[in-house]
C-alpha cells in the first residue's frame, strides 16, 4: 500500500452500539448509589491525588459507565483511597466504594484471598 505520509485515525466517538456498558451494571450491583451520580465534579475538585497529578475520578467514572476502559486501571492506581470525595458528594454516592470496586473489576490480579 502506498504510504501517503498520514493515516486516518479512528473517530473519537463513543459508539453506544458497540460499547460494553454491561460492566457498569456490576458496579451498580455492588454500589447502587453510583447510579445517582450527576457528575457535579465535587469529588474531582476535592481529590487529594489531583493536587499532585492529573487524576479525575468523575471523568473515570463516566468513562467506565460508557464502557471506555482503556487506561482506566492505571488511572485508578493514582487514587490513595483517602475517602475525601465520599464526604463532599451531594448525592451521597459512596465514591470510595465505586473506585474500589472498579479497581477490582479492572484488575483480577487484585483478588487474592477474597472469592
Amino acid at each position: 500500500m502506498k504510504n501517503w505520509g498520514f493515516n486516518i485515525s479512528k473517530p473519537r466517538a463513543i459508539d453506544f452500539d458497540t460499547a460494553d456498558t454491561s460492566e457498569y451494571s456490576k458496579i451498580i450491583e455492588k454500589v447502587p448509589s453510583a447510579q445517582r451520580c450527576l457528575m457535579c465534579g465535587a469529588c474531582a475538585a476535592t481529590c487529594s491525588a489531583s493536587n499532585h497529578i492529573d487524576f479525575n475520578f468523575r471523568n473515570c467514572h463516566l468513562k467506565y459507565r460508557r464502557g471506555q476502559f482503556e487506561g482506566l486501571a492505571e488511572e485508578f492506581d493514582k487514587c490513595m483511597l483517602c475517602g475525601k470525595c465520599k464526604l463532599v458528594c451531594p448525592r451521597g454516592v459512596n465514591t470510595r466504594a465505586v473506585i474500589y470496586n472498579m479497581r477490582i473489576f479492572l484488575n483480577d490480579l487484585n483478588y487474592k484471598n477474597i472469592e
Partner: peptide
Amino acid sequence: IKAEDTLSALPM
C-alpha cells in the same frame, strides 16, 4: 475555591 470544570474535565 476548588471545583472541577466538569465540561473540560479538569480541576480548577
